[in-house]
Amino acid sequence: MAPILLVEDHELNRDMLIRRLNRAGLEVIPAGDGQQALDLMRSKQPRVVLMDMNLPVMDGWTACRTARQDDSIKHIPIIALTAHASEADRQLAIEAGCDDYATKPVDFPGLLIKIKKLSGPSS
């Protein structure tokens, strides 16, 4: 089964999410910025991307818009992970190309449901 790509620049947040996702039986590939995320999406073809929106090098907003213009990766579902919790922020993430939205701190059981929903029946 294809891995999940976790794009998070804060090491503590990234490590905590990787441990929890691994315990849930998911293989995780980490990335620290939007450009690295795009490169890994192209090379690894993850089944879902968990994308922090405030990232160095290339932010998550730009990475999502870029992914949606690339035929080789535009099919990969993206879940925005952000501390921005307003309805307007959620709408901006959807407009940027995200398929779903999760706020920080992460509701982990809810995130697992979103991952399963976007991964399809084989997850």
Rank of each mutant, 00 (worst) to 15 (best):
A31G: 10
T62G: 10
I29M: 03
C64K: 05
I73L: 14
P109G: 00
K104L: 06
C64T: 06
A96Y: 00
L112S: 01
T103H: 01
D52P: 07
A2E: 15
K44G: 00
G97I: 11
S122N: 12
Q45Y: 09
L40W: 01
A88W: 13
L111N: 03
V7D: 11
K116D: 08
L6T: 01
R68T: 01
K116W: 00
L111I: 05
A67M: 04
N54F: 02
N54I: 11
C64F: 03
M16I: 07
K117W: 06
L92S: 15
P46H: 02
R23T: 12
H84Y: 14
L81G: 08
L55W: 11
M58S: 08
L21S: 00
L81T: 05
S86Q: 07
R20G: 02
L55G: 10
L38P: 13
Q45P: 08
L40C: 02
S122W: 13
A80Q: 09
M53G: 10
I29S: 00
E87M: 15
S72Q: 13
E27V: 07
P109E: 01
N22L: 06
E8D: 05
I76C: 07
V7N: 04
A83Q: 01
E95R: 15
L17N: 05
D39P: 02
L21Y: 03
P56G: 08
A80T: 14
K104R: 12
Q69Y: 14
V57M: 11
A67P: 06
L92G: 15
R23D: 14
I94W: 04
L112Q: 00
I73G: 12
S122H: 14
Y101D: 12
L17Y: 05
S72W: 07
Y101L: 10
A93W: 12
P3Y: 10
D70P: 05
V48D: 09
E95V: 15
K44A: 10
Q69W: 09
A80W: 13
R20Y: 03
P109L: 00
A85Q: 04
Q69H: 14
G34S: 10
R47P: 01
I76S: 04
I78S: 09
L112V: 02
R14E: 06
E87S: 14
G110W: 00
I79A: 00
L81D: 03
I29Y: 03
D89G: 08
P30G: 10
H10R: 07
P3Q: 12
M16C: 04
F108A: 04
F108G: 06
L26K: 03
A37S: 08
A67Y: 10
G97F: 10
Q45H: 11
L12I: 15
D99V: 03
A24W: 04
T62H: 12
I94V: 13
R19I: 04
P121I: 09
D71H: 14
D70S: 08
M1K: 06
L38I: 13
L118Y: 04
A31V: 07
E8A: 02
A67S: 06
I76E: 10
A37D: 10
G34F: 05
M58I: 11
